[in-house]
Computed example of a mutant assay.
Amino acid sequence: MSDLATKWGVDESRFWLHGRMPQETVRFDEQTGLWNVYGHAEALAIFADPATYSSDTARVFLADSDLDVGDSFDGNPVVMDPPFHGRMRKLVSRAFTPKTVAELAPRIAALTHELLDDVAGRDRVELVSALAYPLPVIVIAELLGVPAGERDVFKGWVDKIFDSDREVSLESTEEQRQDIEEGLEQARELREYLRGHADERRRAPREDLLTKLVEAEVDGQRLSSTEVANFANVLLVAGHVTTTMLIGNTLLCLDADPDADARLRADRSLLPSTIEESLRYMSPFASLYRATMTEAEIAGQRIPKDQLLAVRIGAANRDERVFERPHTFDPGRDPNPHVGFGHGIHFCLGAPLARLEGRIALDILLDRFPVLRADPEHPPTFLPSPDLTGVKTLTLLSH
């Protein structure tokens, strides 16, 4: 297939699309102060050892900052370590089991048809706004019990949270401080919105995830409204961002490989493996971060305590030691041990839902549109954050 970075003029420094894992699987970057981890085995080892590699990265990232983060991280399972992380995760784990998720299939299919009905008959369709964004955000909003009709408001908040195109760095600059402040402000607005819904559930419980969080107890204590809101915030944001990128990325890959597109249209049993290869080839969350709790050794490199590690998922998923022809999109790849959903205790809770949404949406798209190809007059645009791999807009010709 043609190289996506070359075809669409993407900056080659965006390593998730163009570029290769360096010879060293672990490399210290003096400019940013980060330890970059590129290897697949090294990523697995880090994710499997939360006692050494903590998810509470703010402890290091904001160590010398005078920023007031307040209660921004209270109740957020993404930045928690054991044992509290496991107790928080258990609160909603039943909502994301394969069996529970499978029961959502009819609703996901109905929503997909409904959204595509709105663009039926058009010569070109902007896929992200038509389907890839609204579908997963409606599903997760309905699960939580917040109004899915307010999805445009959610999108405004989330876009601003991920709007910066700057690399994470321990070198404090005014620009980075401004980015952090703006991100915290957007997260705060979304949190206040969700806190209002949490308070309402205390007065009038319903059959939804938000009520379950409000009524749950951890170590004999109810969660505060702030903890509920931060937890719900993660579910709402992570519950749709990954799937939005997954759907768009898969279609972009199929556009660049007409043979793969033709095979998939002829044999839909290839959909699951096509989705897995998309998660590997264009990993939605291209980087995850950890902080060392003690001195550690990775790939022969001694890393002191209280250092910030950037685990480059996009590079690990192209590790030549693990993946044959790693820079080739191969929908039939087997085995495919990618880490697109992470690994260990922080493995993406919503992975079964994201896979199901992607499979159903893509299957229906292929049924309803015999032709879907990227519009050269309206080339795709990409999310600005170097930690995310996904299209921001993707205009497709449907005839």
Rank of each mutant, 00 (worst) to 15 (best):
D3H: 14
A5S: 15
A5N: 08
T6G: 13
S13R: 15
R14M: 05
W16A: 02
G19K: 05
F28Q: 13
A51P: 05
Y53K: 10
S65P: 12
L67K: 13
V69Q: 10
G70K: 09
F73P: 03
G86R: 12
G86L: 08
P98H: 00
P98C: 00
H113I: 08
L115K: 04
D117Y: 04
A120M: 12
P136S: 06
V146Q: 00
D152P: 00
V153F: 08
V153A: 07
K155V: 03
I180N: 12
E185C: 05
E192Q: 14
H197T: 00
R203T: 14
R206Y: 00
L213Q: 05
V214R: 07
Q221H: 13
A229F: 03
T243K: 01
L246W: 04
I247F: 00
I247M: 05
T250A: 12
L251T: 02
D255F: 09
D257S: 14
L270V: 11
L279P: 03
P284F: 01
A291C: 12
T292L: 07
E297Y: 13
Q307Y: 09
L309Y: 10
E324L: 11
D334G: 09
P335K: 10
L356F: 04
I360M: 11
A361C: 13
D367Q: 15
F369S: 06
L372R: 04
R373F: 06
S385F: 04
L388Q: 01
T389W: 05
V391F: 05
L394C: 07
